[in-house]
Amino acid sequence: MNTLLTTLTAVFAGIGRAQFFLINVLAALPAALTRPRILAQQVHSVGVMSLIIVVLSGSFVGMVLALQGFRTLVRFGAEESLGVFVALVIVRELGPVVTALLVAGRAGSALAAEIGLMKATDQLSAMEMMATDPLKRVIAPRFLAMLISMPLLSAIFSVMAIGIAGGHAVGVSLLGVDDGSYWGQIRASVEVQDIVDSLIKSTLFGFAVAWIAVYQGYHAAPTSEGVSRATTSTVVLSSLAILALDFVLTAFMFR
């Protein structure tokens, strides 16, 4: 019973610390905007460096969806609806979710490891002693970069999955679905609200991944084991948070 109480207390204390940390990070965000060069470097590190993995994954996910969708739709003679099938699945669900999972694995883990190592090598302490707040100089720009990059990457993922090398390439070029039907059905069925909802989702996923990554890095034990644990925790917690958040958001958005 005592162990359970201790564990619960530790869990709630951790949540409280994370919320307090988030408030401090949010308060430091305006300072990140006054350092555009650092912010641009971080957007490059988080966003541009994740581009290849997002583009490739988007293409393959789109191709697989087209193959699977075509096999099912053709049984009902509805293969002309392949475009809308791929587009709605990608825009509403897979675009934001898979992008967030990929970015959490590549950039979120890298953020946690980088911040954890900066802590372990006294770089954050050195900044404090040089009268520079690490929350403003290190944490806030990385947080904001993740927040900016995630919806953009999600949009790129969706474009790749639906068109160019994804669903369009397989459905139209390989399986012979009519090009006009493919795009026409998408235009008729995908609403602006779907795209807005998709961007809202990916922004919130970006917020969750950024929060978890910078918190885990900043509070990592200053040892190699501590950094390793922070990195792993970032990926695991971010993935769970993305999937749980997706369920809640979907329940509200697509009632």
Partner: peptide, 13 residues
């Protein structure tokens, strides 16, 4: 008004 030299330098990498 203070400067500090950390054990391993703590240079920003």
């Amino acid at each position: 008004r203070m400067g500090m030299l950390f054990q391993h330098g703590a240079l920003l990498t």
